[in-house]
């Protein structure tokens, strides 16, 4: 479970002061398929970054499981992210010099998993995203949709508690978007994996089971379908 309480985030460079989040309170339970939506500058990415431990709140707490990540040091946060959170980025962000298989395996190497476990899980995940025949291709040899599917497999590799996806379909065509959403939806349904998206893609919003709308740093609505 992710519990966000009274979270504010203020950016102040001495000249300009921006309140990106203003007292956000939200709980996301295990197995949810949640979309955080809102116009550009509404604060949805900031909220996603704070939940993902990539940014720290100015005030408030973010409790994931039993850990208040707002109180973790930088190194603790890095380790927490490795073991508890999977990330899918808008522009895939795969490691360009590694193959699809190596990209998926990478986080497990960081976790010091055995070779047998790595091989088994990598094969399983690449099969799950429909790329079992592309394992030795490097990112520049794959389409955007294929790269994003590898990114999903990578995010799942470390057996995270949940996956945060920041505009995962923004760079994809319709067919790739539909394919990616099918995969993520299936993983949510079959493996009870929690997905939290930030998006303004209507196709993603339509598939979400819960839609949290943010505007001007505040939650405008929270719709469970």
């Amino acid at each position: 479970m992710i519990k966000v309480t009274h979270v504010t985030k203020t950016y102040d460079d001495g000249k300009v002061r921006v309140e990106a989040l203003r007292g956000i309170n939200v709980e996301i339970k295990n197995g949810e398929f949640t979309a955080i939506v809102g116009p550009s500058g509404s604060g949805k990415t900031t909220l996603l970054n704070i939940i993902g431990g990539l940014d720290t709140p100015t005030e408030g707490n973010v409790i994931i499981g039993e850990t208040n990540i707002a109180h973790l040091s930088e190194n603790q946060l890095i380790d927490f992210r490795l073991n508890h959170i999977g990330f899918v980025f808008q522009s895939y962000n795969l490691i360009p010099v590694l193959t699809a298989k190596e990209n998926v395996e990478f986080l497990m190497l960081l976790q010091n998993k055995s070779e047998a476990e790595r091989d088994e899980r990598t094969t399983k995940l690449l099969k799950a995203v429909g790329l079992e025949d592309q394992i030795n291709k490097k990112p520049n040899e794959m389409s955007g949709g294929q790269q994003q599917r590898v990114a999903v497999a990578r995010a799942l590799a470390s057996k995270p508690d949940f996956i945060l996806a920041d505009e995962p379909t923004a760079n994809l065509d319709s067919a790739s978007t539909a394919n990616l959403l099918d995969i993520m939806y299936r993983l949510n349904q079959e493996e009870n994996m929690t997905f939290v998206f930030s998006t303004h893609d209507q196709r993603v919003i339509d598939r979400a089971k819960r839609v949290i709308t943010i505007e001007d740093g505040k939650i405008l609505s929270d719709e469970i379908r």
């Binding site: 190194n75 890095i78 073991n83």
Partner: peptide
Amino acid sequence: VLIAVGMAK
């Protein structure tokens, strides 16, 4: 990206 996904600095 590497640091974001959990690689120690």
